[in-house]
Amino acid sequence: MKDHITLEAFGQHAVLINWAAQLTLSHEIVAYLNWIEKKFPEEIQETVPAYHSAVIYLSVKVNVHFFIEKLKKYVPKISELKNQTNHFVFTIPVCYDQEFGLDIKEVSKVNDLSTLKLIELHTQPIYRVQFIGFLPGFPYLSGLREPLHTPRKENPRPFIEKGAVGIGGGQTGIYPVDSPGGWNIIGKTPVRLFDPHLEKPSLLRAGDYLKFESVTKVQFNLMELEVASGTFQINKKAYHD
């Protein structure tokens, strides 16, 4: 771990950590952050992981330069980073019907695929949640199959409903809250990805995995009712390396 991380001050109350890109998986970053948060509960306010980097936000009383020197001395052993967190594989139901998949025809056409093939390619991979950012609860996912890569729309929509599933360039994702947006919308999930009234407001966390599952409009409508009444059970399995 020591060889491929660099630490630097990011303003007066934050430390930016960069990992050598190819060597690090998101759950390793999350494990390191959990470990370091436990080591310095007084000094650390919160941490935010991203691709190959993370920022540690410090309490205002902490001198960032002293803290970096201290951090350099704390290099975790591989064994200490094991079992820091539990990660899950979520199954996210998506209705790819044209009523929700506003751009599914366009995306099929651009990539020269049938709609069925598009759905097959989108539901095959197990995507990794790299981190949450951009919007409350918005997952940055990796694993979108190359034939589905589609440029963002030239004119972003002023309003995209929460639950919309989209493709933007080489990425796929789910809008957790209503928002403007420029991604191509191919479907919608009834699952609530973000609920500010829960202690952990984001369903997904960095290091988790997810798989999309195609559902019919009838199933979608039923699930939406279950979500509204609080009886919906999401399919969630523990992830093992």
């Binding site: 306010q45 919160e46 941490t47 935010v48 992981p49 936000y57 981190f131 949450i132 950012g133 951009f134 919007l135 409350p136 609860g137 918005f138 957790p176 973000f194 500010p196 952990k200 407001p201 984001s202 966390r205 960095a206």
Partner: peptide, 10 residues
């Protein structure tokens, strides 16, 4: 709103 930035909360 501290403590929720890793969930994308500003």
């Amino acid at each position: 709103r501290f403590g929720h930035r890793s969930s994308g909360v500003p």
